[in-house]
Structures are given as C-alpha cells and as structure tokens.
Design a protein around this nucleic acid. Structure first.
Lengths: 329, 329
DNA sequence: GCGCGATATGGGAGCGCTCCCAGAGCAAGA
DNA sequence: TCTTGCTCTGGGAGCGCTCCCATATCGCGC
C-alpha cells in the first residue's frame, strides 16, 4: 500500500479490503447489495486508511452535485449588518447539514447579477436559493432546472417562492395600532421592488383604507440610516403622526433614533411597530413591538425544497404573529 | 452540433471553433500561448454556446479546488443571532468573490467537530477558515495543508490566526472608564476558552490591577440572555459597581436590560462599555460606548491568506479603537 | 441432481477537464 | 538550402468516481 502523501482513493480501499472498486463504492454510498461480511471488511479498510470520498469526482461521475447555491442580492453593508441575513444563512446552513448537502454562498449587487452564473462555478447544483433576485432577472441565474430553485424575498415568476405572510403581518400590526387608539399612522417601507416590502405596505394600506383613514407610505432601503432619513421626511410632511409602522426592525431602530433626536417620546407621542423580531427589536428602549416570522424556518424550507424539487411557480407562505412590547403601549 | 439538453462542454466549443479541446482550455483558463486570431474565434464559439466550465471536472483534473471552506463552531442560535457572524460571513464572501474562489460554509457544535471532515465533502480546498475551533481540536479538521488554514476567534497552534487586538481594545475601554471617574468596574466576559474573550478579560484585568483596583470578571456565553443572567449574578455579588465592561455588544444589550429591570440608570449609576461596534450598539438607549474592530476586514484577510498560504503559526492582529457613546458619559 | 432466478461481485466505459509531450509551422542565422 | 529555436496547436492519459452490464455464486424446487 504505497500511498505517498496522496489521499486514499476507492481503489486503495478496494485493494486493502481485497474487493473491487465497485464494491467499495457500494459500501460508501450505502447500497444494500453488499453482503454483511464484505461490508464490514470494506468499512474497516476505509477507516484504517482514513478514506473520504472525493466530492468533485463524485459530482463528475454521478452527473450531479451535492451543493446548494445561495445567491443573495443585497448591498455589501446591508448583507453584513441586517440580522435578517444572518438568520437566513443560519437556516440554510443547518437545513443543508440535515439534508447532507453543502452550502455555497454568494452575494451580489443587483447590477452584477448577470455575472452570477460564471462566478458560481456552474456546477449542476442540487438546489439553488435565490434571495431578493428581481423577477425579470431570475432567468439570468437559471443555471439549472427551475424545479430546483426557490426564490425568497421577491417572487420570480417561473420558480417556486417562499415568504412570510407579509400582508397578514402588516394588517395585524396596523390593526394593533388602531386598537391602541392611534389614527394618524404612517409607514416606512422597504424598497418598492421587493415583494416583502410591498406586501407589508399593502397590508398596512388595506387596514387604514378600510378604517376610512389615509395611508401614508415612504420608501427606504432596508437600512437604519435610510429609514432614519425617510422618517425625517415623513415627519416633516406629516408632523401630526401618532404612530409609525416600519417594514423591518433594523429600520425601526433608525426611526427610533430620528424620533429621539426630535424629542418625540415613544410610545407616548408616537407608537412604533417593526417587522422581523430580530435582535435590534430586543435592544431598543423601549423594546419594539414587532411582527415575528420564522426566518430560519423559511430558509430551511427553501433549502430542502430546492433540493427535493418544487412545483415551479408554487408559493409557500409562512405565518406571522404580533409581539407586543413597549414601543406601542 | 447536436447537444440535446446537455450542457456544452469544452469539446463542443472546440468543434464549433474548429480547434482542439486543448486550445479551448487554454483560452478559457487565460493562457497566453494562443494566437489572437484563434482566441477570438474560440471566445465567440464559447459565447454562442453559452459555455461555462464544469467546476467539478476542473477540480478533479486539476487536482485542486477553488473553494474556501468556512467552519464555524457556534451554537445554532448564537450563529443566527450574533451580528458578529453576519459580518464575518459577509467579509469572507466578498473577499472570496474578489479572489475568484467560491465559499462553502458549515456550522457545527463543538461536540460534533470531529464529523466536519466527512461532512465537508473532503475536497482539497483552496483554503479553510476556522472560526472558534478549539485549539486541541484543530487537528481533527485538518483535511488540508495547514499552510492553507487560518483560525479566527481561538488560536489553534499549528496554523495561522487572526484576531482583533483584544487586549489593547479592552485596555482602552477600561482606561476610558477609569478616566470617566469610575473605580468599581466589573466585567462580563465571554466563554473562558475563547481567545477573543480571554484577551479582553486580560486587558481589563491588567488595567485595573495597574491602577491598584480589584478586577471582577464573570463569564457568560456570548448571548444576550446569558450576559443578562451573568450581570444579575455580578450585581448581586457586588452591588456597588459603577461600571461594567462587557465582551460583546450583543451581551451588553442583555446587560442593559438587567440594569433597566433593576432600575439602575445608565450611565449615571453604572457606565457600560461593549465590544464589537455592531448593530445592537447603535440601537440601545443610551447608545453603547464600544470597542470597534474591523470584523469584515479580518474575515477577508483570513480568506485571502488561507488561499495564498500562510506561515503556519503566524498571527495577524488588527487594531481596535474606542467609540464613545452615551452609555459611558 | 439439474436448472432456474435471485443476489453478489468485478471490470469497462466515461463524466469534463488539465497536464504533458509531440509535432507542425515559421523566422532567422549559417 | 538546411538547420536551430522558437511559438502555436493537437491528442493521449488520467484525475476518482458512478453507472451499467457481465459474470460468479448461491439456494431452492422439481
């Protein structure tokens, strides 16, 4: 058994166990068509040699890849700072582990989305999870069967997508503000081309309209400073607001800073409700009332579904719930 | 050119461009030994066919992999919630993009660290970044040349590592509290087996000791609730504390909650300084004084260094700086 | 005791690429 | 004109595996 510093291969294990390469392959892939006696011998030999299958060779010979690709469209700073992405990555990584696949992650700015296929190594991934990939550009990253792609954050027509129930969550949040006696309720939304953001705006608007009140939405960019500036503008245009619904907790943290800087008390003068139930919601003073949704679970579902194959165009909507804290009561 | 729904291969491009496979290979890998005329023809054919190189075949034939593996030892919840990991992932992902390599991410609990090699697909990675991998276990994940591994968060003897200057950062923070007139300064540290945590505790202790004061450290687990509980215990043992240095901002947010619940005013009764300068530091009220360090840059350095190869055992220490906000003044 | 199907094992082909070496083509010097 | 020395191109081998088919082996019923 002359290995040099070469890693052991199937062939080496086969030689040591005195069986053929094929038999070793059957053992390591868990095929049942091996006699227990031979199986044990092979397992022993593999263990002794410290054999580990070569992923690239498998992918090549088996015409498949055991990797889930995650493509996130977001700014560098946004990706680094918004707790949403940390939770998302965590959900994907853990689901993949469970499913026995590896995770490859890529972030890109919208302008460079077309480069993604070339950059991603172009393997035939077991699954692909698209995050915030704009509808019209989803085709550009279709480097695989659409059945094995799932979109998050924006719906991308021909492929499956998953989202929290943004509309219902926003309705609950807005209804809660109404029930707390607020009637001049503004909203700081996220980007207008993101379906999470628009869904939340829609829910908010529908409740206000049904109550005979006038909705007032400003759009920001899912960052705290962006939201702070947007809130500034909103407050300037409508100084009489008594409540603010904000499309993410990170943004809400920015809004709270604007309010504090203006000496506006929360919740006394203005009540604030966020969305996400992420870490910032629990750090602010007062703590944020927010809409909770299972980011990690959504990410896990997307991961597993992309691997097992989804009905293209199907959608999975996850429930939301209101968490009432000090910022609205 | 009969392709079926097969993806185009080098051979297909070669046929269309009327050259050999080798020549196409030279063109796509950017070898200079191709005449401009042929190069142009091949590039055109590749473009027409939408050719993308097959990563697995490359890795197999070229006996190398263009992937950086990231192994994070952290609890599921910790990984999802601590903004540190989001920034870390962001830094790695962007550096890898720049270096033209892909990123594979894995998280594991300490108990399962031994499974990592089997789970990671066992390729010969271009580089490996180990995060919080305990010293004595680093060997277990050595599925590649130690020259191509970089450790973060804990030093792992035979391989290179990078860290913020935890000792200096903690010294600065503690000195700042002293200068602000505080003298009964406690510390809530992270886990005692994490070199970031111990470095911070060391810096704190050295300053207090030099000033003739008695240090008081409790260890927690880098989570907000853990820190809140630890602070509770600390306050119980030393009710006269007038300042608290906390080893991370996320933990400091938990500590602030404990203080608020006990009716202790910040900074009037107790000043608080955190570490990391992450999102929670900017969300609390008052905002946290904290020690800033370039997490994304450290992660990027680790990524690039793991790929290019490091001196095993070498260490790179990144500077820290104090950011003074309301929680300490 | 012979044939039959079922089960276990071996070996060839080939996945798409890179590496290496051989050969073709060309310019310039003897 | 014939070499010498280059640059450019082609083709074979082989990376480590999976798939498929051929063959060996066994047990069982008649």
């Amino acid at each position: 058994m002359e290995l040099g510093d070469r890693r052991p291969t199937l062939e080496d294990v086969a030689q040591l166990a005195r069986v053929s390469r094929s038999t070793v392959s059957r053992v390591v892939t868990g095929s049942p068509r091996v006699s227990p006696h031979v199986r044990a011998r092979v397992e022993r030999a593999a263990g002794d040699l410290g054999y580990l299958p070569h992923a690239a060779a498998r992918a090549l010979a088996g015409r498949r890849d055991d990797t889930v690709a995650v493509v996130v469209v977001a700014g560098e700073r946004e990706f680094a700072e918004d707790p949403y992405y940390g939770r998302l990555v965590s959900g994907v990584v853990d689901a993949a582990q469970e499913a026995g696949v590896r995770v490859r992650i890529q972030r890109t700015d919208e302008a460079y989305l077309a480069d993604v296929p070339a950059l991603s190594g172009s393997a035939r991934f077991a699954g692909t999870v698209l995050v915030n990939v704009p509808h019209q550009l989803a085709g550009e990253v279709t480097f695989r069967d659409p059945r094995h792609m799932v979109s998050l954050g924006r719906s991308a027509d021909p492929i499956a997508y998953a989202n929290p129930d943004n509309v219902a969550g926003a309705r609950t949040a807005t209804t809660h503000l109404l029930a707390a006696g607020r009637s001049r309720i503004g909203m700081v939304a996220g980007p207008s081309d993101n379906s999470c953001s628009t869904g939340r705006a829609l829910g908010y608007q529908s409740v206000l309209t049904a109550a005979g009140l006038r909705p007032y939405v400003v759009f920001a960019d899912f960052t705290a400073p962006g939201a702070a500036a947007a809130a500034e503008g909103l407050l300037h245009a409508r100084p009489d607001l008594d409540a603010l619904f904000v499309a993410s907790d990170l943004m809400a943290a920015g809004v709270l800073q604007t309010l504090a800087a203006r000496g506006i008390r929360v919740p006394d003068d203005v009540a604030v409700v966020g969305f996400d139930d992420s870490v910032p919601a629990r750090c602010t003073a007062p703590a944020l009332t927010t809409v909770t949704h299972p980011v990690e679970q959504i990410a896990a579902w997307a991961t597993l579904t992309s691997v097992s194959g989804a009905q293209p165009g199907s959608a999975r909507i996850f429930p939301t719930a209101l968490v009432v804290r000090g910022s609205s009561t």
